[in-house]
Amino acid sequence: MREEIIISGRLNPNIDPHLTIWHWHIPLYLFLGGLAAGILFFASLYVVLGKENQFRGAVRRAPVIVPLLLIIGLLALFLDLRHKPYFWQLYTTIKIQSPMSWGAWVLMAVTPLSFVWVAIHIREYLPKWEWKWMIFRELEKFFVKYKLYLAWALLFLSTILGIYTGILFSAFNARPLWNTSILGPLFLTSGLSAGAAVIILFSKRKGERVNFAKIDIMLIGIELFLIVHMFMGFLASTEVQIEAANLFLGGPYTAPFWIFVVIIGMILPAVLEFLEIRKFHIPHVIPVVLVLFGSLMLRFIFAYAGQLSRWLY
């Protein structure tokens, strides 16, 4: 028998008996960031592609929630900080190797631009809207004029934001479960999929909805492919990574992961969306909610399970 114990009674809160330093804040933050990135990605993409009018849901309507998502996300992040009065230190330096620093700066850039985006499309919801102050009218004029550039900037930044929400975890070599290059693309895809789903909800045009349902099905397909590959990768790897994968293959996170994330959050909505395209009558909120749920759970489960996985020595 092998017995390994800490005999000095160590019980540092949030570290022992296993790491729980990150709670709901970080997965929520990552989910909201990923979702916002997904929406902005499609919004800017269709402007860049010059198809703004066919995809009004994506370009003009869905982005209205993005500033809110980002603010809630940032709030969650802020709540997670344990040394809050010092949060401003985040903005005193740029640390290229730190995903946290990246995230802080990307959000710093994306958040105001998302406000601008909503502002220049405000008449989609309030047709009679007129800015009170001259300065805003001037600004609006300016941004509308350079909307294409704005779209390019957002396309770029939303991609970075999406990737960032994925690599935040995978940058941590110390947690074997996270230490896979597949986590970045997986979270990015999940964010895009969630974004596409939300757009379905906001879109008023049938054709646009079908288009995004197809995109969603494709993205879910990619996600499933990535998940399979991730596990194959783990199982072909070192003992610690096999151990990590076992959290999902017989360990404590098996049921939540396969049921909530894969079945309820991916396969089921994909099937429903497929049926919808095939003209079955299905209220389109249902697959949308399922996708969002799956995307959220994916982050929660990876956040907690990852903290459970550790090196053996």
């Binding site: 540092n12 809160p13 949030n14 570290i15 022992d16 790491l19 330093i21 990150w22 992040l77 997670d80 900080l81 344990r82 040394h83 809050k84 010092y86 949060f87 230190q89 985040l90 730190s98 995903p99 946290m100 940058a171 941590f172 070599n173 110390a174 947690r175 903290q307 550790r310 090196w311």
Partner: peptide
């Protein structure tokens, strides 16, 4: 300490669990 925001990233990053909040 006065530069640390308490984000916990370093705690997560240490394979030895050497840091605490």
């Amino acid at each position: 300490p006065h530069k640390c925001i308490g984000c916990g990233a370093c705690v997560v990053s240490c394979p030895y669990d050497a840091r605490y909040s």
